[in-house]
Amino acid sequence: MDATIIGAWVATGLTLFIFSFLYKDNPLFKLAENLYVGVSVGYTIVKTYDTVIVHLIWKPIVENQEWTLLIPVAIGLLMLTRYVPKAAWLSRYAFAFIVGVGAGLAIPRTVSSFILKQIEDTIRPLLMLVPGEGVTFSWNLMNPASSVNVIIVLIGVSSVLFYFFFSVEHSGPGKMVARTGVMFLMIAFGAAFGYTVMARMSLLIGRLTDLIEYSDPSYGRPTLWLTLVTIGTLIVLSRRSRSEPPDSH
């Protein structure tokens, strides 16, 4: 049998088994779930072995004599001391190194992306220099750089930032500012929600396109047969669970 046809049957079966979760938790879903987790773990182990142990450790050290790589290898091996209770404390050095390096890398990146970039994009002149017209106040909402949009962005950034003040009580005028901030947040969330839902719909369309393609006789109609098998199994399981006596506790 052609490998493409086997692939079509496996893909269709697993897709339908996962979709069966929409009805309720059932053995078919458990089968697909365990298979999925098992395959992904197996794949990760093989990939990690090849990428890290072979290409990042073994080959550079043995073939290229890059002995300095023994330092990260030693730090990494300290992790394994967790399995020896008496030496488990050594693993804390490895964790301290990882958390320290992580924080060290994250701080400048955070200052750059979440502080400087935001300040840079918020600071815009309230007046525009238009060739032929001179310095003007632009009311054009369609132009992101217009004066009125600069004011909207300024109000949004200031109010949202104020909402995230934790040592100041949100009462009186502060409450109004914080509520304005929440309003801006919700508008942003709404836009993001709609955008992401559309992206998810495209994923669903991708799966459905595959299922339609695999209903073709050239593949042996796996979509048709496996849909019948899935529905049949769910009906049988449902009837069996009804006939079983209720749980004692």
Binding site: I119, P125, L161
Partner: peptide, 30 residues
């Protein structure tokens, strides 16, 4: 730490206010 972050945010708000003022002044006076 949380209090320090709040002060930091207040500083950022001040920088934004001063920055917008200066940027506007820069455009107006070239």
């Amino acid at each position: 730490t949380l209090r320090g972050q709040d002060i930091g945010k207040a500083m950022i708000l001040s920088v934004i206010a001063i920055g917008i003022l200066l940027a506007t002044l820069g455009v107006a006076t070239q």
